[in-house]
């Protein structure tokens, strides 16, 4: 479970204070699929960075899986990112010099798994995203959609509790975007909690919950499940 209570994030430059998040409150339950929308500069990326422990916050309370994130040091945050969070980035962020196998291997090595365990997880997850046959390929030899699938395999390889996706379909054409989205839905159905930041209202609607961030606050909270949407349609 992810709980944020009155989270504030203030960026301080020499003479300007910017409130990126203001008394931000959110609870994400086990198995949720939350999409986060909002205009540019609304604070969604800041929210995602804080939720993913990529950035610290100025004040407030943030509990991730019951652990008080505010009390963790840099190494503690690294460990928690590695153990509990999987990231999917808009630009895929694969390491261009490493093949798919080695790319998926990166977070597993940080975890300290032995070679056998790593091999099993890499193959299992590349299989899961349908790219097991191409594990010796370099990212540059794949299409955008395939690269994002590799990134998903990398994110899943550590068995994270949360999958944080930052515009995961932002760089993909609509066909590939649909296929990546379907994959995320499958993953969610298998029990992984997903938080996805997106501009795309249509894709956002496919999540179980949609929240909107505006001026650093959760301005609207829709507790409508996709199944419910579909039923209405």
């Amino acid at each position: 479970m992810l709980i944020m209570k009155n989270i504030n994030k203030i960026f301080q430059t020499a003479d300007i204070q910017t409130h990126a998040l203001r008394d931000f409150c959110l609870q994400v339950n086990e198995g949720d699929f939350v999409s986060v929308t909002g205009p540019s500069g609304s604070g969604k990326t800041t929210f995602l960075n804080i939720a993913g422990l990529l950035e610290t916050f100025s004040n407030g309370e943030f509990l991730l899986d019951g652990e008080d994130v505010g009390k963790l040091n840099d190494n503690g945050r690294s460990r928690m990112r590695n153990e509990k969070i999987g990231f999917i980035f808009q630009g895929f962020n694969l390491i261009p010099d490493l093949n798919l196998y080695d790319n998926v291997d990166v977070p597993l090595r940080y975890r300290g798994f032995n070679a056998k365990e790593r091999k099993f997880r890499i193959e299992q997850n590349l299989e899961r995203v349908g790219l097991a046959s191409r594990m010796k390929h370099l990212p540059s030899q794949l299409s955008g959609g395939q690269q994002q699938r590799v990134a998903i395999a990398r994110a899943l390889a550590t068995d994270p509790r949360f999958l944080l996706a930052d515009e995961p379909t932002g760089n993909l054409d609509s066909e590939m975007a649909q296929s990546v989205m379907s994959l995320l839905e499958d993953i969610n159905q298998q029990g992984t909690t997903i938080i996805m930041v997106t501009h795309d209202a249509q894709l956002a609607q496919r999540a179980k919950r949609t929240i909107q961030v505006k001026d650093g606050k959760v301005s609207e909270l829709e507790n409508i499940s996709r199944q419910h949407n579909q039923a209405i349609a």
Partner: peptide, 16 residues
């Protein structure tokens, strides 16, 4: 730079 940021996001400590 971005690759290093990504490694950090994937759980690398500063030491690593």
């Amino acid at each position: 730079t971005k690759q290093i940021g990504t490694r950090r996001a994937l759980g690398a400590t500063k030491g690593q």
